[in-house]
Write a protein that binds this DNA or RNA. Structure first.
Lengths: 390, 390
DNA sequence: TTGTATGCGTTATCAG
DNA sequence: CTGATAACGCATACAA
């Protein structure tokens, strides 16, 4: 089809990239490069004509000053004559100038953006943390970019890469249940990008951490059950890869031991509690010959699943079965007879992480904080309050 | 001090900026630029060395090739010798190269980021929409930046400005209840940045919109109450500045009229339904002499507040009072005797808006869509199911 | 007080 | 297949 414009041959022609949207060819015979300028010029050029945005240079030109003058005027720098500044400002609004944050960021190598990676979005926990962090960051003039790892280590890695590529100024992260290698996080340390772990933390990496008193909370929750006369308390725990799960298990065991209750292994089930799993585990527990008379679940959705199963089986709550959850989801207040649960200070978690990251971003003092342990609150409702006992 | 490296003169030398951390000079006499590589390299370079990130140039240098070659190799462009490419790739991982998205974006004037502005974060509605949109966008290689207007017109304006400044490729927005001027949105049209409204939409601006069948849903909800034998049905509506509120009110009225029920103005209350307001309005309604025997509320939290008030007053649900809400919050399934409500396809709303914005971003065809009306589902629970009637 | 010249890290263009 | 070099839009050190 294509003939060499030099030697006229058609055999040795091969494609050689693009030039200005046009196909470029190389004639192997005479070793000559050329482009084929036929057709489709209209559509192409129309596409390329991307609306020009007003830049600092446009203002400078139309005012007959230099772009640095415009830049200074725009930023309220000192040493600018009031007249010039006013002129610039007027022109800017007149031309509807919008600063290009991208270019600014490139120059300053700073984005005024904090990143946040959360493992899931299904429980209200993380959205609430976001509300808290968002509040603080917005007031400080920072943006918040949120990503979701979806409980996948691989996705978490790609998220952190994206965060890195986008040059966020700091990262707030809650790990997935799969994460047991932390190289993707140490990169941030090497780069000098502040990093804070919250909720799903690990010990392998030395950065500030914000958590709640999981151990104590669980201890008190289980003790509460014991004080209400429950004897055989089962524990429906999260995956032991998570520190929160370990802590809550530890709290459970400590309370049981303190009160001289035996800890039966078959009364403890750990795992990722999807609704399906919660149902399976719950069925198993409630079908046991030595059925537990109480269950301490690691989250509210599982606790509620337990309650539903109990209702189906005609097991009365709280008389025949006590239930305690964790997190105080909205529905827990309403399900009959009310689910006793541990309320987490979600907003405060968000606010604290945000405040800390701001300090780190501004001060470069990376050793500022160690670990903040926020307090939870046991919300006692009907599911654990036995009328008959003390 | 400084001699021109070319003509040897010292008089015409003047500073001329920096090159890679070294002072650059210009000899006015022979018009020759050169850099002086002497002294103070330590302090200066240390300061500038602000944790230098590996760049494309570092790779090029250490490999003795040009940066364009590196760029091409990195992007898998054609016309690269396999050896070169492999060398570049190896070097890149060896030096732990992370592309600078900022610079990329600046050149391409494209950020691969979609912005989303939502009015609130307290109900699960918007978080769920986010889940849906996030899913689609992530798979398409886009980031999602979320901002929250907090029901404030002013904040919404500043949010849109920030989005503009950050050069997002497209915007998904749900308006605040205060928004009645739309200049901040038409800016996006002028700039050629795709924009999609969802849930909280308006007619003043001609862009694609994604909503649910509010009118029909409300109509069916109220008709459902009527068919269950309720006579005096009150409506607790949202602020009439919102189109959703208007539509739901319209649906309510249409159903009432169709079934020959009188529409009493004092049975209709519109406003921003904070929990406090919901309680005040609810008290008012249930204290009326001609107390309504059913309430159709514009959201679940208000409906639940009504149910709580009724319980306090000893009004039995559903026999003495029927209640229907909107949105199917998690707690609605659990509050006794279950709240009848309209389930919204939140994930699908998110997915649809995301898919549309991707099409707009890619195709430049801004007239692609008009308005998508997604279907809701009436979830009938105990709060409206009178045993005595048909 | 203002202008000049440079760099930030990439991609695209053009030339071999 | 590869290398120079010009954008991209802005901030800033220095010179004037």
């Amino acid at each position: 089809m294509i003939k060499c414009v030099k030697c006229g041959e058609v055999d040795g022609i091969m494609k050689a990239g693009y030039v200005r949207g046009k196909q470029r060819y190389l004639c192997k015979l005479c070793n000559y490069y050329f482009t084929c300028s036929e057709k489709d010029d209209s559509a192409q050029s129309l596409l390329r004509k991307k609306r020009h945005q007003t830049t600092i240079i446009d203002i400078a030109k139309s005012l007959g000053v230099s772009n640095s003058t415009v830049s200074r005027a725009l930023h309220g720098h000192a040493d600018i004559s009031p007249d010039t500044r006013q002129a610039v400002l007027d022109k800017a609004t007149q031309l509807d100038y919008q600063p290009n944050q991208l270019a600014y960021n490139l120059v300053k190598s700073k984005t005024n953006t904090i990143g946040m990676i959360v493992p899931e979005f299904h429980n209200p926990f993380f959205p609430n943390v976001i509300i808290g962090a968002h509040d603080i960051l917005t007031k400080a003039g920072y943006n918040l970019t949120i990503m979701q790892s979806n409980e996948s280590y691989q996705v978490e890695i790609s998220n952190t890469k994206a965060m890195l590529a986008n040059r966020i100024d700091g990262l707030l992260i809650s790990l997935t249940q799969e994460t047991n290698n932390f190289d993707h996080l140490s990169v941030f340390e090497k780069r000098g990008i502040p990093l804070i772990l919250f909720n799903r933390v690990c010990e392998e990496i030395d950065v500030p951490k914000v958590v709640v008193n999981d151990f104590e909370a669980s201890f008190l929750a289980v003790e509460h059950l014991i004080l209400n006369g429950y004897e055989r308390i089962a524990h429906l725990g999260g995956p032991l890869t998570l520190q929160v799960s370990q802590e809550r298990l530890r709290g459970y065991k400590a309370a049981m031991e303190k009160h001289g209750k035996s800890i039966d292994d078959h009364m403890i089930i750990q795992g990722m509690l999807t609704q399906q799993k919660a149902r399976i585990y719950g069925q198993y527990l409630l079908d046991l010959a030595d059925r537990p008379d109480a269950v301490f679940a690691v989250n509210d959705s599982s606790a509620i699943e337990i309650m539903l199963i109990a209702k189906e089986k005609g097991i009365s709550i709280p008389d025949e079965l006590g239930v305690v959850g964790f997190s105080d989801n909205p529905e827990s207040a309403y399900i009959g007879p009310g689910l006793t649960t541990v309320r987490q200070p979600t907003l405060e978690i968000g606010r604290t992480t945000a405040e800390w990251i701001l300090q780190l971003v501004d001060s470069e003092d990376l050793n500022l904080h160690e670990r903040k342990i926020l307090n939870t609150e046991l919300i006692v409702r009907g599911s654990s309050r036995r009328s008959c006992v003390l």
